[in-house]
Design a protein around this nucleic acid. Structure first.
Length: 452
RNA sequence: GCCCCCAUCGUCUAGCGGCCCAGGAUGCCAGGUUCUCAGCCUGGAGACAGGGGUUCAAAUCCCCUUGGGGGUACCA
């Protein structure tokens, strides 16, 4: 069943789609889908200086990545110049607008603001009143023949029969101008819903200095689009119960402007990370493996030599341990290199002890004798070793972990060795034993070469 | 400066006059599981910006103050 609801997302292509814009797009999209209405996309490229094709493409890509599909458009305002001109001249003919030349000699058309009171009922804020005497006659058609935002917006929204204007509340103060325009033309007024803005983590306006602010950056850092959508949906809206993880379908079913907030929200990367982790845990290993492959490839790892089964095992081992694909890459980088990159703190804590080299050599020896290099055999092997020496298991597990992975933190040591394989495990271990003798000064070890 | 919007734990929020000495999530702290971390489980600390009203009763309604955000362009 369709309805007459028609909404739009109308970004200006002067930069990437940022988080705030994405949330506005999402609310429009959810509103349209919930009401079986139409969601259309309109590119407001009326600023010839700042609009770029790259930005337009980035916005379209971001929308697609997020899954925000549109039913009409994208329409480009730059292709509708004659329409705006016609409407503007019509206003001049009616005496509601006039030509004006500024100090720089630029000739533009200005709209005559009538003194009075403009009041409208915002779907989110309720009644909002403005004294239009405080608003000056504003330009509607610039000297370059392009319309200004307020003008093009009204002409298009009326022409495209937009029923609900859902946009950031930074547009509240534009609304009286637009309403005056609607009235001047005799257009039917749409409903207005001004949703709060998204602020940076420090509560100030979201800007580049807050780190990642564009949708593409989140994509490139290995976030899942649904997680971002879910997170964004909960910024300024809630389903009314304690549910935080919602499928797209659930969001559509439950979405309502009545449950949208008036208060601006601060973007919180930490919670986004948690949510992305939740989505990763709820995504199958098969699916993740596919995406991880693509992500690792883009990150410069030669995946052609990596068997699919092996990668799936890696993903399985880290399934509950990583929050983003970038995070996974950071944690598992050592699997893809021969050299061991040491974390200094880990070395200081676990390798700079007397007798460590000997202990690792013993470990090397027994490990080299393990035929089936699987986690069970490895566990039996190492537990036997520590029992024989008479030390706690962690006394060997940690040095071994640092020796092989370079860090004090990793997935289970047996699983890690199994996945790494006997050859590479021994190679890394040997490399550490050698390094211990050479450069980890303050450690007294014999200069004899490590056994192989 | 002027105009507009907003105000519940650090953060995201539930709450729409009594069910709230305020619930959930995240983050943080502690304990458990354990080869480390993560995860998971259990517990804990943590908020109605301040001041006036209205009312038998206010986080919820009104006013003021303060704080934050937005606008004031031939930007959108």
């Amino acid at each position: 069943m369709s309805s007459n609801v028609r909404v739009r997302f109308a970004p200006s292509p002067t930069g990437y789609l940022h988080i705030g814009g994405a949330r506005t797009a999402l609310f429009n999209w959810l509103f349209a889908r919930h009401n079986n209405g139409i969601f259309l996309l309109r590119i407001e490229d009326t600023d010839q200086q700042r609009s770029t094709e790259e930005a337009t493409q980035a916005i379209l890509d971001s929308m697609k990545w997020l899954g925000l599909d549109w039913d009409e458009g994208p329409y480009y305002q730059s292709q509708r110049l004659s329409i705006y001109k016609q409407y503007a001249e019509n206003l001049v003919a009616q005496g509601k607008a006039f030509y004006d030349t500024d100090a720089e000699g630029r000739k533009a058309i200005r709209f005559k603001m009538e003194d009075g009171v403009t009041e409208f009922n915002d779907l989110i804020h309720g009644n909002i009143t403005f004294d239009t005497a405080l608003i000056e006659d504003f330009v509607i058609l610039k000297a370059d023949g392009f319309p200004t935002y307020n003008f093009a917006c009204v002409v298009d929204d009326a022409d495209m029969e937009i029923t609900h204007i859902i946009r950031g509340d930074d547009h509240i103060s534009n609304t009286p101008k637009q309403i005056s325009l609607y009235n001047a033309f005799g257009f039917k007024l749409p409903e207005f819903a001004h949703i709060p803005m998204i602020l940076g983590e420090d509560g100030s306006r979201l800007s580049k200095r807050h780190g990642a602010t564009s949708v593409t950056e989140y994509r490139d850092k290995g976030y899942l689009p649904h997680a971002l959508v879910n997170f964004l949906a909960l910024l300024g809206w809630s389903p009314g119960n304690d549910q935080e993880i919602l499928s797209i379908q659930e969001m559509i079913e439950k979405f309502s402007l009545k449950r949208a907030n008036k208060t601006s929200a601060q973007f919180n990367n930490t919670k986004l990370d948690w949510m992305n982790g939740q989505y990763i845990k709820n995504t199958s290993v098969e699916q993740l493996t596919l995406e991880v492959k693509g992500f690792f490839e883009k990150s410069g790892i030669d995946m052609k030599k990596i068997p699919a089964v092996w990668l799936a095992n890696l993903v399985k081992l880290y399934h509950e341990r990583f929050k983003t694909f970038q995070d996974l890459l950071n944690q598992t980088g050592f699997f893809f290199t021969d050299a061991v990159e040491y974390d200094q703190a880990a070395v200081d804590k676990f390798l700079k002890k007397e007798g460590i080299a000997d202990l690792l050599k013993e470990a090397y020896l027994v490990l080299s004798l393990v035929d089936n290099f699987d986690k069970q055999s490895l566990e039996d092997c190492l537990r036997t070793l520590t029992a024989k020496i008479g030390i706690g298991f962690s006394k060997v597990a940690q040095p071994l972990r640092v020796a092989i992975t370079g860090r004090s933190v990793s997935a289970g040591i047996f699983e890690t060795m199994e996945l790494l394989g006997k050859e590479k495990t021994l190679k890394k271990l040997d490399s550490t034993i050698v390094t211990l003798g050479k450069t980890f000064e303050s450690v007294k070890v014999d200069a004899e070469p490590s056994s192989a």
